[in-house]
Amino acid sequence: MKSASRLEKVLEKGEFAVTSECGPPRGADAEVIRKKGELLRDVVDAVNVTDNQTSVVRMSSAASCFILKGMGLDPVLQMVTRDRNRIAIQSDILGAAAVGVNNILCLSGDHQVFGDHPKAKNVYDMDSIQLIHSVKTMRDEGKFIEGEEIKPPPKLFIGAACNPFADPFEIRVPRLAKKAAAGVDFIQTQCIYNLDKFEEWMKGVRDRGLHEKVYILAGVTPMKSVGMAKYMKNMVPGMDVPDEIIERLKGVDKEKRAEEGIKICIETIQRLREIEGVSGVHIMAIEWEEKVEEIVKGAGLYPRPQV
């Protein structure tokens, strides 16, 4: 075992893992995190805490992780390279490990123009792959980026994101290979709606044996409405929402569309479980954490294994 991560244990045991997400509040109220954590307790194996997602200032991921850890959950510290240089990143990693955070997700982060502080200076001292490499060096070699010894090194289970639908498609598998070579342990993918395209990507992943090097958790997000589906299709870069999804939501009464969205999500998970090389799912129920339990139960993934 590389870490004390519950997620790592579940995956090592060969169980189909379930992770979810918790977006911190735009305020200093710890109660918000606790409430969200309560909704996810025992329902998922690990909980990602987003790091100022879409470049909107929120409570820090590290502090939120600390709160969840105190509740007995296994948080995943999301870390973007947008806002911190290598000094701050390594410092935050040591701090997170010290308070018992066992997982990290290495990201470049959305560009700050999307957020509430578009006039900010970005950092990008490193990119997500360099971050993976740095965390691995810190953990396995016990060394900082400049080569000095770390006593004791942070034991983190290293994750990264992968978007099978972004362009250019031909480098999507090589890009995963690059992350695997840099030392990533698990991958959480972008939300999957186009299963055919995802299967094509997974075939490429299997052809190179990458599914045996890294655990792939397939990302899903339940649709709340037709409006949300259209927004995801048209406004979110790198998102592939087939028209069938929108048509299917339109096909039911307005008040039943959220329910239909949950149904689609459950069916997607069931199909994803059949794909060789998919080790789990990552459920991103955006500001809809109360529905995660229903999805997990509906997909037959409850109760979660005791590890």
């Binding site: 470049s108 560009h111 792959i129 870069p237 790198g238």
Partner: peptide, 28 residues
């Protein structure tokens, strides 16, 4: 737009940058 040395990020879409559709994705 992010000066990534190992790009592209997930925001590259149709050869364009997530920052703005008028910016060509450097990694593309």
């Amino acid at each position: 737009s992010k000066s990534l040395l190992n790009g592209p990020c997930g925001g590259s879409s149709d050869g364009k940058c997530e920052v703005n559709k008028e910016i060509v994705c450097g990694w593309q």
